[in-house]
Write a protein that binds this DNA or RNA. Structure first.
Length: 236
DNA sequence: TAGGCCATCTGGTCCT
DNA sequence: AGGACCAGATGGCCTA
């Protein structure tokens, strides 16, 4: 970064008198302005001009403008990237089974639910018979059949989740299964090896490296950050 | 008012 | 040089 710009206070580029006054506009460097002859047999003058290309002198104002422009572009890219990620997350939400009245899952809930759902699905595929598939995903049972799909909960944690999202007015959970549950219990789903997918949480998020040295893997869940939530999507 | 969730900005790192 | 990706910081909004 430190060698990224070079500006000179004297004898350098005069931005006010320059025709390419954008400061960060490098289009004036376009190769179309050069003849093939120049490229093959550069004159001494050309050689000198080319050498100064990479570190062209810029005024402090130009440097600031250049930095600002790059920052704006980077912000736009980042915004677009996040929107793309959100779109993908939305498609994932639509692919997951949900309660009809349940409000939108949060990002982390969606990822966790998808992770566990896929895990449960993979566990079930080998055992499934023709007709209906029943998945037991922690507290939630998902039935996939020709007559439609159904999702039910064996504990009240779903009611808690719905109540949290829908507000006090929806405190009575509309699903019969929930009403007959005497109580719901809290537990740390990441320390409960009997329920959570045992080997799916690979602690390799920190090992993520660029390049092709290691495969991409699902990020480890951040149980330390989420604390002891009582949410069906976390505790699956 | 505290806490959770989210979008955005930002600087760093790596890759092309 | 610029793009992609990432993680931390920040501020807004909402809810209990």
């Amino acid at each position: 970064m430190s060698s990224e710009y070079s500006f000179c206070s004297e004898g350098g580029f005069d931005e006010l008198s320059s025709s390419s006054d954008s400061g960060f506009d490098v289009s004036f460097e376009s190769p179309k302005h050069e003849s093939p002859t120049d490229a093959l047999f550069p004159t001494a003058k050309e050689e000198k001009r080319k050498k100064s290309r990479g570190t062209r002198c810029k005024s402090p104002t130009q440097v600031l403008r250049l930095k600002r422009n790059r920052r704006i572009k980077a912000n736009d890219r980042e915004r677009h990237r996040m929107h793309t990620l959100n779109d993908a997350l939305e498609r994932l939400r639509l692919a997951l089974p949900t309660f009809p009245e349940d409000t939108k899952l949060t990002k982390i809930e969606t990822l966790r639910f998808a992770h566990n759902y896929i895990w449960a699905l993979s566990q079930t595929l080998g055992k499934s018979e023709a007709g209906e598939i029943t998945l037991n995903v922690g507290n939630v049972t998902v039935s996939i059949g020709e007559n439609g799909n159904m999702i039910t909960s064996s504990t009240g944690s779903c009611a808690v989740a719905a109540q949290k999202r829908l507000g006090p007015a929806h405190s009575a959970f509309p699903y019969p299964q929930e009403r007959f549950m005497p109580e719901w219990q809290e537990y740390d789903c990441y320390s409960d090896q009997s329920i959570s997918p045992p080997v799916q949480y690979q602690p390799c998020y920190e090992q993520r490296v660029y390049g092709h040295h290691s495969p991409h893997v699902l990020p480890a869940t951040h149980h330390h950050a989420m604390g002891h939530h009582t949410n069906m999507y976390q505790c699956l």
